[in-house]
Design a protein around this nucleic acid. Sequence first.
DNA 1: AAGGCTTAAGTTACCCGTAACGTAAAATGG
DNA 2: CCATTTTACGTTACGGGTAACTTAAGCCTT
Lengths: 347, 347
Amino acid sequence: MVNNMDKPIKNNKVSLSQVARAAGVSKMTASRVIRGEGGYSEKTRVKVMQHVDQLGYLPNRLATVFAGDQSSTFIGVSIPDLGNEVFAQVLEGIDRKLGTFGYQSVLGLTQHTQQEEENWIRTVLSSQPAGLILTGRYHSPRSMDMLRNSGIPVVEIWDLNSSPLDMSVGINHFDSGFDMGRYLTSLGYQNIGYVGTSHDTANAATERLNGFCKAVEGAGGAVVKQLCLHDTATYYPGFYGTEQLLAAARDTECIFFQNDAMAFGGLQYCASKGLSVPEDIGIAGWGDLPIASVMNRRLTSCHVSHLKLGQKAAEMMMGRLTDEPVPTCTDIGFRLIPGSTVRNSGA
Amino acid sequence: MVNNMDKPIKNNKVSLSQVARAAGVSKMTASRVIRGEGGYSEKTRVKVMQHVDQLGYLPNRLATVFAGDQSSTFIGVSIPDLGNEVFAQVLEGIDRKLGTFGYQSVLGLTQHTQQEEENWIRTVLSSQPAGLILTGRYHSPRSMDMLRNSGIPVVEIWDLNSSPLDMSVGINHFDSGFDMGRYLTSLGYQNIGYVGTSHDTANAATERLNGFCKAVEGAGGAVVKQLCLHDTATYYPGFYGTEQLLAAARDTECIFFQNDAMAFGGLQYCASKGLSVPEDIGIAGWGDLPIASVMNRRLTSCHVSHLKLGQKAAEMMMGRLTDEPVPTCTDIGFRLIPGSTVRNSGA
DNA sequence: AAGGCTTAAGTTACCCGTAACGTAAAATGG
DNA sequence: CCATTTTACGTTACGGGTAACTTAAGCCTT
């Protein structure tokens, strides 16, 4: 406990009754003064506020929420992991925006598994959040039941979901993969590699890959996939995933990575082996990480405004909670970044 | 609300009374069954659990906490910003560890200001968290008052604090700056630059700089500082901060950056100007970002296990909450990484 | 078969704040 | 100056769960 004395002080939270008693008024009068509701004299106001300051009274929101007079100011936010910069930015956008409305994020890291998400949902729902923001559109059946039963607003982010549980904001990952596939084939690439991580369940990266393959194969090209098992989508798996891919498919002309971090790993592998980019091999990432802004060579990638995505999700949540009309789906869009890590015209 | 019907369903949360009534028992019996407390027959247990499942009952933790029977499972966690990978990792460590104990993080992004932190503390304390984990050791006087009055455990992380409010875990930033200063001067560098961001209030980066200057000046060297105003400590400020520094101090032999992200920006600036590292100029960062693992040239830096720092903070919090003896201060240490972006012996 | 013990319940009170309602005194109006 | 309204409070009840206590029935035991 926070004190410098030898023995722990007991939980001496100051309650409204104590303030009221000290000020010689009823709880109700004290409550009215504190909320500035009106219906009290100036003399009483001063007297009550004096004791509030003196006792260091902080209102107990739990009591208010519990009594059902107001909904809580908690918004549960599930994020796969924070090792991925992209999700950290999304969370930053969410929390900052929620903060301006006086709401707080209650975090849940799901490690990309539906089971973790389900456990978290059960726990977080028991503390009566005003709403939930979930990453991804795939949830376990039990999660779906709980979400529906809870009756609270839910925003699904990241994957755009045309038939969301409630609301959805994100981008169409299939389309973004498709666009990248079309772009690379338009430059004449035919033997294309993909380096990513593998997942038990479908997710946004899977959809990008699906869209990518469809475009490449539709243009007469072929995609060789290298999925790193049991790994997070960061630099090092990108490095050795590239090594493995190139060992298995020597004629690869260009590689599309699950994200920019993996692409940087791939770039470094190429540099270490003396492969020139884009002369010997093309490299494309996804997500447009901030570090790209200072690279001497612009990484071919796909830009998504992660911060804006988070903010939008928070705004939709707040809109719903204040009974404003809110669109069910918001596509925040993406932008393909041609970059200079792929050749710049058909071969 | 989560339904496909036209009109919003009313908040139909199922309460314990409803379960009890449906099962034909008292609230108390239902409560005992649900908590597995004992004191009921098997027949009753089955009957109650059937109705729990059927009605989709989820206990309302708020009620339990509010009644004062248990403390909440919320831990308030304040973080300066998530744009800095380092803090994202710390948060990841905290939340994962808290999760294993059934606790949740309630996030607060303070944007490096004490005022934001104070506002957040006031808000989060009103929802009766079991404890708080705060980044940094500097808090506003009002914050200090509130923390002391709250009587809940507080862990201050990041800066090691020999006389913490309650508990502290982190590293000694002054020492880590000092070690870097001593290392660079031992290699013969004398005219050294520093590139960082400026802050209203003292923080860990300030202490690193102080330690650094002390070591460099103690060894007869000089430090020229370039503090970028109004900027977050990321890649691009590192890039143009380097440009500004080198314009102002042409004889700079080596630059120490506030963190690795800024150092990467500096490296890119050098590359863009044809400056060889470490032949023409030395570069040192701080924090040892994951991306360093795939760079062809190891960045001179200082390694801190951010994930472990977060986990340790969560462990100390949990220890305190379960009345185990917990050390007041934990130094998780740092490790200087010589790297190859500075010359490797005295000039 | 009476008394004591165990088991399986039920009852009451409480946590803290606020809505709804009640009331006495002061202010206003005709 | 009395009737009406307004102001400034106070009182009661409630929400969802649990601790503490009470009660009723079942089970031994001698």
